[in-house]
């Protein structure tokens, strides 16, 4: 891998802000490794694959110039300093009684988990899947939970402000590949006083298991290829997420909007036996959290 590291060093040496250099190094290293894997799959030896992958990356000197200019340390340190300043302002506001939350809308649907409301008990939506053809999905809120305390993990104190289980039933004229399914949505909120430790925003939870011992696969393992065409050429697009596939899987993201909190949403598509569901165990930052899901029946 010496070739690779030589190339990575040359390409990143002009990035003077160390945090950015680390991140860009990892991103480019991942890229080279994936190209190498593709080469090996085509029959090249490891060494040949590495040579081809590094060659495909192009001239590292030219790239170094561009990256160095983009990731100028002035902006990097200014960012760090402003974050510290923000931290001090937050501490001050806490002491002064106010509690401002810097809500950066990174994920669209994550507006701030403490403001999430339960969906309606019954909701019907119409889906048009072909010109003039449609079917209906009836979503029923079956169970709901609020304000569950989960304990500590990763240096944060976790709680569930809102969680709910919905069963989705398709009308009779639904296409064959659209089954009845359920979704278990769990919003997660976390508080911490340790503002000097920060998680990388936008990571994913790593494992989810339930009381029956079932380990839910990550949605990335269940992506479905979708074919389409643009103009005269066909392409294959990969759809991610539980919204386009009905396989049992989980999708989880978290983000860190400010120094004192983290929040996330965990969505499971198709819990295999929802009536037997008692708890879920998730690992967060390597530590385990148990979510007690007994009761919660909705009248």
């Amino acid at each position: 891998m010496r070739r690779t590291y030589w190339w990575l060093y040359a390409a990143t040496k002009k990035i003077r802000f160390s945090m950015d250099r680390e991140r860009v190094w990892q991103e480019l290293e991942g890229h080279i490794q994936e190209r190498m894997e593709a080469g090996e799959e085509r029959g090249l030896s490891r060494d040949e694959a590495e040579k081809a992958a590094v060659a495909a990356m192009g001239d590292p000197e030219a790239l170094a110039e561009e990256l160095g200019r983009l990731h100028a340390p002035y902006w990097g340190w200014l960012w760090r300093v402003s974050q510290w300043a923000l931290g001090l302002v937050l501490v001050w506001s806490l002491l002064a009684g106010a509690w401002p939350r810097a809500l950066e809308d990174l994920w669209g649907y994550l507006e701030g988990v403490s403001e999430v409301e339960l969906p309606p008990v019954v909701e019907t939506s119409r889906v048009e899947y072909e010109e003039g053809k449609f079917y209906e999905t009836t979503s029923r809120l079956v169970r709901a939970w609020q304000d569950l305390e989960l304990g500590e993990a990763g240096g944060y104190r976790w709680s569930v402000p809102v969680a709910y289980l919905r069963c989705h039933t398709q009308s009779e004229d639904a296409p064959a590949d659209v089954p009845d399914y359920n979704t278990l949505t769990i919003y997660l909120a976390a508080e911490s006083c340790r503002f000097w430790e920060r998680w990388e925003a936008g990571g994913t939870l790593f494992t989810v298991t339930d009381n029956t011992g079932y380990a839910y696969p990550d949605w990335e393992e269940t992506y479905t290829p979708r074919r389409g065409s643009i103009g005269a050429s066909d392409y294959i697009a990969y759809s991610f997420g539980p919204y386009t596939g009905y396989e049992t899987c989980f999708s989880a993201t978290y983000r860190v909007p400010d120094f004192f909190s983290a929040e996330g949403v965990l969505e499971i598509t198709s819990v295999p036996h929802p009536e037997a569901l008692e708890w879920l165990e998730v690992t967060v930052g390597g530590e385990r959290l148990r979510i007690d899901l007994r009761g919660g029946e909705v009248q």
């Binding site: 860009v24 480019l28 495909a56 192009g58 001239d59 030219a62 561009e66 990256l67 983009l70 392409y235």
Partner: peptide, 19 residues
């Protein structure tokens, strides 16, 4: 794929652009 191999972007172009 989508451009039928007409557009072959090099990493040296893509990454500075993305960043």
């Amino acid at each position: 794929k989508r451009s039928n191999n007409v557009f072959q972007m090099k990493e040296g172009t893509l990454y500075p652009l993305l960043h």
